[in-house]
Structure formats: structure tokens, C-alpha cells
Design a protein around this nucleic acid. Sequence first.
DNA 1: ACCTGAACACCGTTCAAGT
DNA 2: ACCTGAACACCGTTCAAGT
Lengths: 227, 227
Amino acid sequence: MGRPAKLSRERLQTAALALVDAHGLAGLSMRALASELGSAPMTIYNHVAGRAELEVLVVEAVIGEADWSREPHDDWRDAVVAITVALWRAVRAHPHAIPLILTRRSRSTALLEASEALLDALARSGRSGRELLIAFRTVTGFVMGIAQAELAGPLSVAADEPADVVIGRFRALPRFRYPRLIEIADAAATSDAEGELRAGLALVIAGLDAGLDATPSPSRRRLPVAQ
Amino acid sequence: MGRPAKLSRERLQTAALALVDAHGLAGLSMRALASELGSAPMTIYNHVAGRAELEVLVVEAVIGEADWSREPHDDWRDAVVAITVALWRAVRAHPHAIPLILTRRSRSTALLEASEALLDALARSGRSGRELLIAFRTVTGFVMGIAQAELAGPLSVAADEPADVVIGRFRALPRFRYPRLIEIADAAATSDAEGELRAGLALVIAGLDAGLDATPSPSRRRLPVAQ
DNA sequence: ACCTGAACACCGTTCAAGT
DNA sequence: ACCTGAACACCGTTCAAGT
């Protein structure tokens, strides 16, 4: 069979992502990848230091699909939305890779790029230093948390079990004990994911907006802050 | 070496968590756990269906450490803060278990309990149905995302490498290319984690507060802001 | 410079057998 | 009801050897 015998980082990358997409994280192994590419397991080590680096390659491939810079945005809020929605879409397109993304992202230059762009937008809200750090942590935490929650949270929809199974499990909970959970399980059954993301993001941005009133003086604030 | 030969779910649970805490996720294996408890690997299967169930046990142990119900809170904002901070502290005390928690939490009854309590607090902000779902997703996404980000994000502090190594890696980035990342890396080096969490949470809650103005139907109300 | 087979030290889990 | 050893089908990675 005319198998291209030449291996390359790029071929490893796309084949690895394909494996993860098709068979889940457990499907990604040096041996499986090698046989997929028609070569010996050890050949892979000529292009990649080990499994960890392979995983970073997968993360890069996923994040690389995010394209947030179609047009520039005058309003920093629009820029924040554009970047986070683009990231979320890319991540969501590869649900099996999410644990990898959460775990290996600090090594991905594609994500560094996105992070810098997001920071740039947030800085335009008038923040710097620690305030900027907190805004950054809040937004990225939110996006990653939402992406993850959808996959594996109590109301998971994207996991390996079909949505109605998960929601059914919730409906089966003792009604008197978890009335609220059952209420939102019903709501979750009929709502679209991106709509939820955007609505949540709007809340976060509203918070970022409100936070601007109180910021400059470090001592007293109007927000329910710790201590 | 008077080893108690009797195995029990509870002994498995604490031993498994101890293994994860001490040696990381990779340190948790049926075989390692068995030898830790002085029994044969297969004995474990008499108390637990398999590795997946063992992992849920670990999640339960971690979440079970969160205690948010010391006193009731009149203000829903205070309740939200109390619950999320308690969860965050418990999770943060076991950083190696975080991937497990993100992945297996939908099976943990301890987390169901916490979720219901959080929903209860959020419902007191005047939300229900889809609005409640979105508020819930936003807050839980935020907390989990932050906990995870701290461990593995671009500014990770809790990973297996010491903080100064990570931050040093950032300082080594091309300054002209990632100026904002370098700026917050400096801020991250001197800031405390719980302070960041609470400040971010304050932003989210401010957003939840602001969101009340815009709500379409009956629950429009202008609550006096905290304090 | 790139590829590879054999081997090592691990996994989770099935099965049949013990008490 | 609880425990267990042997075995199966996997892992990632080292090493020595090939081209």
C-alpha cells in the first residue's frame, strides 16, 4: 500500500489529533499512533521527545484552529467576546482533547498568542498589574471551566454517554432533595451550548464593567470582596 | 507489622487519596494501592467495580472536606462566596486530584450536595430556569477553571515544577511579543491565590448583580448592593 | 539522520481457584 | 462473602543495532 514512509512532526500532530477525536484520550498511544502511520513505535521518538510532547502537539493543533482576529474591535468587550468564543469553539470541536488542553496548555505557543490578545483587550478596560491578572484569571477560568463543565459536569452533555442518559440520571434523583438541580436539568435539556456560553460571558463582562467604578483606590470598595 | 487485613471502601478511599497526594495521579494504580494496603491487587475488586469507581471515591473524599454550611447567610452573595471558597479550598488542598475532580465530579454525591446549595443561593438572586442554569454554569465554571488554571495554566504555580521556574519561563519570553503576559507574570509572582480567587469571584458576583437589571420579566428588582 | 526489534517495568482486568 | 495467583492484552521508554 503506498504509505508515505516519511514521518514528520506535522504528520504526527494531525494523526494524533485524529486518534483522540476518533477514540478518545485512551486511544492515543505511541503504539497506536505508530501503527496508524505505518511505522514502528520507536520511530516516533525521532520527532518527539515523548508522550508529553506529543500531547502538547495535540493541544497546539486544537488551539490553532481558533481564529479570533478576523477584524479588530474598537470596544474591548467585543474583543474579549471574539477571542473567548473562538477559543471555546475550537476546544469544543475536540471534546476528547479537553483534559489535555487543561493540562498542557501552558506549553502551547498558540495559546500564548491568544492569551496575549485577550490580555490586550482586558488592558483596554483600564486595568493593569494585579487587576489585569485577576481579570485574566477570571475570564480564562470561566471559559475553560465552562468548556470542561459541559463535558463532564453534573449537567454534562458532551461526554461519552448521550445527553438524555445524563439528564435522565438527574431526573431520577430524589426530587425533594435536589429540586434546583432537577430544575436546571430541565432547562439544560432544551438550551444551546453557545447561547449559554455567551450569556455567561455577558455576566462576567458586566462584572468587569462594574468593577471599573471602584478600582483606583486600593483600600475601600463597594463590591463584596474578601476580608 | 500488624496490618489490618480487612479491606473496606473507606480504607480504600483514604489510601487512594493519600497515594494521589503523595505521588500524583500516576501514583494511583490498583497494584500500588493494593501493596499499600498489604493485599493482592484483585482484592480491591471486591469493594469497587474498577478504577473508575476508585477515582470517584477520591473525588468524594476531596469534596467531602469542603464545609460551607457553618452559618447560614441572609445575603445570597455571601452564600455564594462561602460555598465556592469552601469548594475551592478543598480542591486546592489536593492539587493532584484536580483532573479527577473535573472529570468524575458528576458522579459525586458530595458535589451534588454542594451544587444544590449553590443553586439555592443563586435562586435567591431572583433567577430560575435558564437564567439560573446560566448563573450556575458561570459560577461553577469560574471556580473550577480558576482552580485548574492555577495548577496548569500559563501562570501555573502549583504544578510539579516550582513557581519561580514557571514564572521564569515567562520572563524568558520575547518581551516585545508577549508584553502583557510578562506584566501579569510579575503580578502573579507576588499575589496570594485565595485573594485572587475572591477578587475574581467578586467580579462574577458583580456581574450577577448587574444582570438583574436587565432580566426580562417579573423579577426586576434593584437590591441594595452589599453593605 | 532516520528507522527499528527486543526487552523492561509497568498497567487494568478476566478467570479459575482457594477459604 | 471475601480473598488471591496466574495470565492476557495492553502501556511508555531504554538500548543496541541497523541503514
